[in-house]
């Protein structure tokens, strides 16, 4: 099936359109699902992406020739109709549909199906071939409702008024979602940011995501931020950066925190199971819902999802793409 779409270690290649999806090396013509660095790289000739994703790429790599593709928009190239649809992963994240000679392929990119106040809700797109991610494709990964995790964060804050609460969260997507979820339950106090977060938060604001009062964490060493919530990239938690604050309590917001031994390896105090990826149930429910003739799996725990497809008499195969950041951003 779909001998016009090829998987190579560098990305997915759509031959009739001479188009690469999320390529890991510069290409003349690329479609980008979302702004995370393992999917969106600089240096391509012409780029197709949602306006939000293009904005993120401009911030990171500088402006480049691009065609903005809002959700629902489609263009044709070499007989292939290329469309963009919400993926629910982060601001601007898209699934890309490719229709050629009556056959439709959908590339989910990274996605989740739960509501997220910072981005549009995932829309299922019927297709013949579903090219899906599998970051959390093991039945041990079931992400709990986010409300419970936010409540745990606020409980820790109330319990340790003398400690600065530093939450490790990826600077693009996770950080803003965390802020919005805190706002949603009525947390109006300023939230302090590591410098690496500031530009992305401004970008979200420009796209209409009102994050409330944000202040830089820098310059507030010692006791000043005791009892406050600070958001920083996960890499800053065990860096000297976090030692400047009063007796910091370290939290990490990630789907990997579901596994105790994993959380322990990270040496943190408060694991928050918050993920922007589909969990096992979302992954399998999406395949069940769409019933594609074939499922191709790009990255993550491919073996388990293939096994599940076999058990359900669904055709599936793994694509083995390189350079996908498996564990830090999730």
């Amino acid at each position: 099936m779909a001998d016009w779409v090829h998987a190579s270690p560098e990305g997915i290649y759509v031959a009739p359109a001479d188009l690469w999806i999320d390529p890991s090396t510069p290409k003349p013509f690329a479609a980008i699902t979302h702004g995370h660095a393992d999917h969106a790289r600089g240096g391509h000739g012409r780029v197709l992406a949602t306006p939000e994703t293009l904005d993120i790429m401009d911030l990171r790599y500088g402006a480049s020739p691009a065609t903005p593709m809002p959700y629902g928009a489609a263009i044709e190239q070499g007989g292939v109709a290329i469309g963009f649809h919400p993926a629910g992963h982060i601001l601007g994240s898209a699934q890309i549909s490719l229709t050629y000679r009556g056959e439709r392929v959908v590339v989910t990119g990274d996605y989740k199906r739960r509501p997220d106040p910072t981005c549009a809700l995932f829309t299922p797109v019927p297709c013949d071939i579903l090219i899906t991610e599998a970051t959390f494709a093991l039945p041990v990964f079931t992400h709990p409702p986010i409300e419970g995790e936010i409540a745990r964060l606020l409980r820790a804050q109330a319990q340790f008024p003398g400690r600065a609460i530093i939450v490790g969260a990826y600077a693009l997507g996770k950080a803003q979602r965390l802020i919005m979820e805190l706002r949603r339950v009525g947390y109006v106090a300023p939230i302090y940011l590591h410098g690496a977060m500031e530009k992305m938060c401004e970008l979200y604001e420009r796209h209409g995501v009102a994050l409330g009062a944000l202040l830089p964490a820098a310059g507030n060493a010692g006791e000043k931020l005791a009892g406050q919530i600070i958001i920083a990239p996960p890499s800053a938690l065990h860096d000297r950066w976090s030692r400047r604050f009063a007796d910091p309590l370290l939290a990490v917001a990630s789907g990997w925190m579901r596994i105790r031994q994993r959380a322990r390896q990270k040496n943190i105090d408060l694991p928050l199971v918050i993920s922007d990826h589909a969990d096992w149930n979302e992954l399998t429910q999406t395949i069940t819902q769409l019933r594609p003739a074939e499922t191709w799996i790009t990255h993550g725990r491919t073996d388990a999802l293939i096994r599940w497809c076999e058990m359900n008499q669904l055709r599936a195969r793994a694509l083995h793409l390189v350079g996908r950041d498996e564990e830090d951003a999730a």
């Binding site: 041990v140 725990r301 096994r307």
Partner: peptide, 14 residues
């Protein structure tokens, strides 16, 4: 649970 999914999960979780 399917034994193979269980084994894959065990391998991952450790």
């Amino acid at each position: 649970v399917d034994p193979e999914l269980l084994a894959l999960s065990r391998d991952y979780v450790g």
